[in-house]
């Protein structure tokens, strides 16, 4: 009976062990990578809205403050999406015949709410609160990115638990003075490694990593 396994099969066997291991590791790596990719988290993805509302025009070009529209961001968990009336404060006169704004006018005429599509949406088993973050010196920009440069709103960060925890473990890396919360393109006047710990002390910020902080 001829030999089935040639001597070279020895090397093949060794190589296939290594290869199999490599394959398993890279598959796991791929899965982890996929889990964090924007394909899963929907970060960096433009969302089609019923109206092409542009923060780049309203905030970047016209300098309107976030709070003009997101009125409850300092006082409640929910930042608030402006009602149609807020748009009409200005668009009763500006671009008042533009077809781009027809849904806004229709909404006022028929007393129907505009249906914005959510850009950020945490799972319902996570508790999040805007007012706490605003009071403790976390700027809009830190979580939402350069909103003033977004022609359509998109999610800047993954919003995964690991992202929240990265800051909750070491808030001094990100906190800024309360007067700069709404500033876009903020640059700390002194290095963050000096300013951060000082602010954490001044504002009495704790590192909240207990599960029940966010899952309550």
């Amino acid at each position: 009976m001829p030999q089935i396994f040639k001597p070279s099969a020895n090397t093949l066997a060794k190589a296939s062990i290594v290869g199999g291991l490599l394959l398993a590791v890279s598959l796991i790596g791929l899965l982890i990578g996929l889990g964090r990719s924007s394909y899963v988290t929907r970060a960096q993805e433009f969302i089609e809205q019923p109206i092409q509302f542009s923060h780049a025009h309203h905030v970047g070009d016209d300098g309107i403050d976030c709070r003009y529209c997101h009125t409850s961001v300092e006082t409640s968990s929910f930042a608030g999406i402006p009602p149609t009336k807020t748009c009409m404060n200005c668009h009763s006169q500006i671009w008042s015949t533009s077809p781009m704004l027809e849904p806004v006018r229709a909404s006022i005429r028929d007393d129907r709410s505009l249906r914005w599509i959510r850009v950020h949406d945490l799972p319902d088993f996570v508790y999040f609160n805007h007012s706490v973050h605003v009071k403790n010196g976390v700027g809009c920009e830190t979580c939402h990115g350069r909103v003033d440069e977004m022609p359509l709103t998109y999610q800047q960060n993954s919003l995964q638990m690991e992202w929240c925890l990265d800051c909750h473990r070491a808030p001094e890396k990100y906190v800024r003075p309360r007067s700069e919360i709404f500033t876009m393109g903020y640059r700390p006047p002194v290095p963050q490694s000096v300013q951060g710990p000082e602010l954490v002390k001044a504002y009495g910020i704790e590192s909240l990593t207990n599960c029940s902080t966010c899952h309550r």
Binding site: F78, G80, I81, S113, R115, P123, D124, F125
Partner: peptide
Amino acid sequence: DMHDAPRYEPLEA
């Protein structure tokens, strides 16, 4: 589906 619990979030349709 715990990601979308049967309750309304603020302003939910």
